[in-house]
Amino acid sequence: MSKRSRSVRADSCPLPPYFGLLAVDAKDSTRLPSVQHAPLSRTITEIIYRGLEFAGLGEMRREFECNTGDGLAFGFDPSWLPLVISPFADVLDTLLQRHNTGADPHIRLRMSIHVGPVPVASGTAGDGNAAPRSEAHRLLDCEATRRWLADAGEDGTPLVVIVSDAVHRAAVLGGYCAVPPSRFTEVRAEVAGKGFTQTAWMYVPSPSGGLLSHPTAQAASVLGATKETDGASPAAPRPIQSRIQHVTSGVAIMDSTLRDVHHHEASRRAPDRS
């Protein structure tokens, strides 16, 4: 073996394990009085936890969880990727709509889902930090995601989801996700000044406003209308038992916007593979 080949092997190292990342951030939270910042953080956390429970993901182990002041972030087993898209995003959409009928500041979320290897060093600085995590934030902050949420009706669409191409191929086109490929729209995810450009896919559980001009949104609107009964609010989905196959990894991140804020004062359960 040559010295060159030995040198190349010596410089290589194993990939870190694949993890999913889920994060929520409240945009424009600084517009709220300081006294409301802590309640906002608690509200977002409670909605996320409740959504996980209702979606059947309550026992999903949350890795390197941290409160970001105006949000929440944690890692999760990547085998849950299809269920993070659905039913979790759908349940979260319903919970946000219910929350926004109250007197508290309305919360609207942007969520991104990505994949990649993430190093884990529990209890040390940098735990969970890697390029996939940065890319997930770029997806969240890209013009396409912001534009879709802005184009949606404020009272009709509390959540938009952007899925990376890798996740779309593995979880959606692979047939593991309950949401069919026809409900996703291809977009170009770009962040000015960051040198970030990727193909991604948008999914909106409850499209409204300008989003209804999108073919996939029109189909979703018709589908939703056929499920309405007596005008009653949809019940919180019951926990489900799902069968999924372990795929590569996922990163899910959410960011929220607040509307009309000025007028308002575990061990992991293994998926059933039978």
Rank of each mutant, 00 (worst) to 15 (best):
H168D: 11
A200F: 02
A171H: 02
P158A: 06
G153V: 08
E190F: 04
D155T: 14
A189S: 15
T185I: 13
D155W: 06
F196W: 02
A171N: 06
T157I: 12
G153F: 07
M202E: 11
R147S: 12
A166H: 07
E190L: 01
R188N: 09
V167D: 01
I162D: 03
M202G: 08
G153W: 11
F196C: 06
V160C: 13
H168Y: 15
T157Y: 01
T157H: 00
T145D: 04
P180L: 01
A166I: 02
T197E: 14
V191Y: 11
V179F: 00
H168K: 08
I162C: 15
A189I: 01
V161R: 06
E190N: 05
C177R: 11
G193V: 09
F184P: 00
S164A: 15
E154A: 15
V167K: 03
F184M: 03
Q198K: 15
G156Q: 11
P158I: 05
P180G: 05
T185H: 06
G156N: 00
G195D: 07
A192E: 14
A200Y: 05
T157D: 02
G193M: 01
H168A: 13
A192I: 09
K194Y: 10
R146M: 14
A152R: 03
C177N: 05
E190K: 07
T199F: 04
D155M: 08
R188H: 13
A150W: 06
T145V: 14
G153R: 08
T145R: 01
R188T: 15
F196N: 04
G174W: 10
G153A: 10
R169E: 15
G153Y: 09
D151L: 14
V191G: 07
V161G: 00
L173A: 04
T145Q: 10
A170P: 00
V160K: 07
A152T: 08
S164L: 09
A192L: 09
T157W: 06
G174I: 10
S182D: 08
E154F: 06
C177W: 07
